[in-house]
Design a protein around this nucleic acid. Structure first.
Length: 728
RNA sequence: GGGCGUUUAGCUCAGUGGUAGAGCGUUGCAUUCACAUUGCAAAGGCCGCAGGUUCAAUCCCUGCAACGCCCACCA
């Protein structure tokens, strides 16, 4: 018999153990292979024929703990996969964690900072040891938390993106691309901290408002505005907006412009003539300054991108220490601020300064030391995207892969059509080291791409010794391989390609698009059929939930207080497809619903106690109420199944809620009470109560797995089975 | 700046070319007999604003406004 009060905490723990011990999370242990019709079969009917269904979990980073986004990310696929498993499908939900290069390095460095140390003091090897310690300690936190949510992933196959076999696949992918001629080295302007002597990612930048001066310099026939006159020696073009009527006629011309010379003595500024081409580029805002900008590709990221588009040369005038270099002639060796001051004076003296006005703007500073960051050119590895992007476009364009909802196809196509080559190298320590070797002599820069240090002499300089590239690969380079690098060879035969990924929209391009072309490139097949994009969970005020802003909510709070089922209920109840303004009331509604289910079950089990009925009994309805509830049950079953298969989980749950609470509890149970005291010699009412209850909790199981399983275990003659593998 | 989305009951959201729905909240009544984490009932909405299409618009179209998200950027 069921306890009077439903205690989720205790029961959820027991039930989860029951499931794990059954081994059914692993598809290899599942009883009967069956069929699936999920996600509308492809033309070839792949989904119809398949006996497996594979979902790729969005890899949680090893940096953090659970938030509502993860709860949503994982509850929805869990509904689907439980539904299918109950349909006899061999379901594999592949779980894993991502080393998340920059993000993880960042948190470990913050740890170090608390100890007053830096990664440079530790050195690369020791530092990486520290990151591994972190990973081993916190790496599976989210996965453990997901278990509390009831997630039925196959934990026996859990992978980490830096597992040895995974690393091998990463290296193979790199060498593969290299052999195809798609990898090349080139310059790219990056964010550089002159004080820490390192490049910084977007994550490591802190923006500060800076009060400065906007200088209007004469570049006859133009005047143009800049806050950084000292970089003028690195100018390689001038740019205007192509639609700017004032300057349209200049586009494409090269002008001789009178300018400040870097020659001569510092005491006596002098003039020289420079040649600058005028280019038209949309990046130029005609409303800013005079609508003409100088293009300094080596020292400005936007300018670098303009230069790329127009194939402009790059002249570096500032070095890695933040000082002017020999290209700056007589200003060589000056610090940036010093040089700026001197250049301003010289421009004024020569009458080249048209106007100066106060100006406030945002500057990027180093999160560690607060220094203003200095965009500088550096050598990076690039992956040519032309072919790869084309393949990803085609996969969706030809409907081999469907993105739900369809409107997300647009940003997907836009991104891929305008894609630039992918910078795959990162100047950090934590990650997959590039399988690239250079000879130690330092005389030649010949790069050998290989998974091991080459044993032969360098073809250029005959040098015998090599050192590996210091850089690591972009995290997405490895997570792009997840659908197959996460599988063993035998698993690839059985389970690749898979079926579904479900994630938030911001990684549609970063991750989904890259998994698609990687799957096609390395396995010759699309990795999945469906991409399910769900809404973002916002706060009740409609702001983004974010840990750093303190607006994030940990679902464990709800799980502990109201139970995992109530939490899953709340997430699913609200997941209509739009962004969700999180409403805690939904969790309470979920708690009430589980309570309702519990008590209705207690009632039914109490009423059948005295008679001999089992769930195998077939029942002929006698009264109008009997007929009605059976009809509604069948109808609900149809609607719920259909909606789950269309990924309309929220609708399915609303339907179930309505049926169970109102049709079953409010109406039929009340009728049943009357019927039970009236003539009922053949136990029809008892049988119907039991049947409806059993079928209800079966349908509810994918949504509220714990409580339904707990009840099922108490139902007489439940065939000794688990509800998780009971067929619908 | 580009893209996308939202605007319906006090709150969070469904929904349909033909008198408007749910959950929570509110109010009233009920209640030893599954559940007060309950039941029954009620109140509460010019379905953002302005045009248009239509016999008929909350729904389709155009414009406007507000809010939000994603991406890019601020010389």
């Amino acid at each position: 018999m069921l306890d009077k009060i439903y205690d989720p905490k205790q029961i959820e723990k027991e039930i989860y153990e029951l499931w794990e011990n059954s081994g059914y999370f692993n598809p290899d242990n599942l009883p009967v292979p069956g069929k699936t019709t999920v996600g509308e079969p492809n033309k070839k009917g792949k989904a119809n024929k398949t006996k497996t269904y594979v979902i790729y979990m969005p890899l949680p980073n090893v940096t953090g703990s659970l938030h509502m986004g993860h709860a949503l990310d994982n509850t929805l696929p869990d509904i689907l996969i439980r539904y299918l498993r109950m349909g006899g499908v061999r379901t594999l939900w592949l779980a894993g964690t991502d080393h998340a290069g920059i993000a993880t390095q960042y948190v470990v460095e913050k740890e170090l900072k608390k100890e007053g140390r830096t990664r440079f003091e530790l050195g690369r090897e020791k530092f990486i040891e520290r990151v591994w310690e972190w990973k081993n300690k916190y790496g599976n936190i989210i996965l453990d938390q997901l278990k509390k949510l009831g997630i039925s992933a196959d934990w026996s196959r859990t992978r980490f993106t830096m597992d040895p076999s995974y690393s091998q696949d990463v290296q193979k992918a790199f060498t593969h691309y290299y052999k195809k001629g798609w990898l090349y080295r080139g310059n790219r302007t990056v964010n550089w901290c002159p004080r820490c002597s390192t490049s910084l990612s977007e994550l490591e930048l802190e923006y500060k408002n800076e009060k400065t001066t906007l200088f209007y310099m004469k570049y006859e026939p133009f005047t143009l505005a800049t806050v950084r006159p000292e970089t003028k020696f690195g100018d390689t073009a001038l740019a205007v907006n192509p639609n700017d009527e004032r300057y349209k006629s200049y586009i494409g011309k090269t002008l001789n412009i009178e300018s400040l010379s870097t020659e001569g003595s510092l005491d006596k500024p002098s003039l020289t003539t420079i040649n600058l081409k005028i280019v038209g580029d949309d990046a130029v805002d005609p409303a800013f300054g005079t609508g003409v900008v100088k293009v300094t590709p080596a020292h400005d990221i936007t300018d670098f991108e303009i230069a790329e588009r127009h194939k402009l040369p790059m002249v570096q005038v500032i070095d890695h220490r933040g000082r002017m270099n020999e290209q700056a002639g007589k200003y060589n060796g000056m610090k940036i601020a010093e040089a700026r001051e001197k250049v301003i004076q010289d421009l004024r003296a020569l009458g080249l300064m048209a106007k100066e006005e106060p100006y406030e703007h945002r500057v990027a500073t180093c999160y560690r030391c607060g220094s203003t960051i200095e965009p500088l050119p550096s050598k990076q590895w690039f992956l040519k995207m032309t072919e790869l992007a084309k393949n990803s476009i085609e996969a969706v364009d030809k409907k081999k892969i469907k993105i739900h909802p369809k409107r997300f196809e647009k940003p997907y196509f836009e991104w891929l059509k305008n894609i630039r080559d992918w910078t795959v190298s990162r100047q950090i320590w934590w990650g997959h080291r590039l399988p690239v070797y250079y000879c130690v002599c330092g005389k030649c820069d010949h790069a050998t791409v290989a998974t091991e240090p080459p044993k032969t002499k360098c073809p250029k300089c005959s040098c015998k010794e090599y050192k590996q590239d210091e850089d690591v690969l972009d995290t997405w380079f490895s997570s792009a391989l997840w659908p197959f690098a996460g599988l063993s060879e035998i698993d690839i035969k059985n389970y690749y390609p898979g079926d579904l990924v479900s994630n938030a929209r911001e990684i549609l391009n970063l991750w989904d698009a890259r998994m698609i072309f990687s799957g096609l490139e390395f396995k010759g097949k699309i990795p999945f059929n469906d991409v399910l994009i769900h809404g973002t969970i916002l706060t009740k005020d409609g702001k983004r939930m974010s840990k750093s802003k303190g607006t994030g909510i940990d679902p464990l709070n709800y799980i502990n207080q109201y139970g995992a089922d109530a939490t899953r209920f709340a997430v699913t109840w609200q997941a209509s497809g739009q962004d969700i303004r999180w409403d805690e009331a939904a969790v309470i509604a979920g708690r009430k619903f589980t309570n309702k289910i519990w008590n209705a079950s207690r009632f039914v089990l109490e009423k059948i106690k005295t008679v001999d009925v089992t769930i195998q009994d077939t029942v002929k309805p006698k009264t109008a109420a009997d007929k009605k509830i059976l009809e509604e049950l069948q109808n609900t079953k149809k609607i719920v199944g259909k909606n789950i298969e269309k990924f309309e989980f929220s609708k399915a749950l609303h339907e179930l809620y309505d049926f169970f609470w109102h049709s079953f509890c409010d109406q039929y149970l009340e009728e049943a009470k009357k019927q039970l005291v009236a003539d009922n010699t053949d136990s029809t009412t008892q049988k119907l109560l039991l049947q409806t209850l059993t079928e209800s909790i079966t349908m509810l199981h994918p949504f509220l797995p714990f409580i339904t399983e707990a009840i099922y275990q108490k139902i007489p003659n439940a065939e000794n089975k688990l509800l998780m593998v009971k067929t619908w």
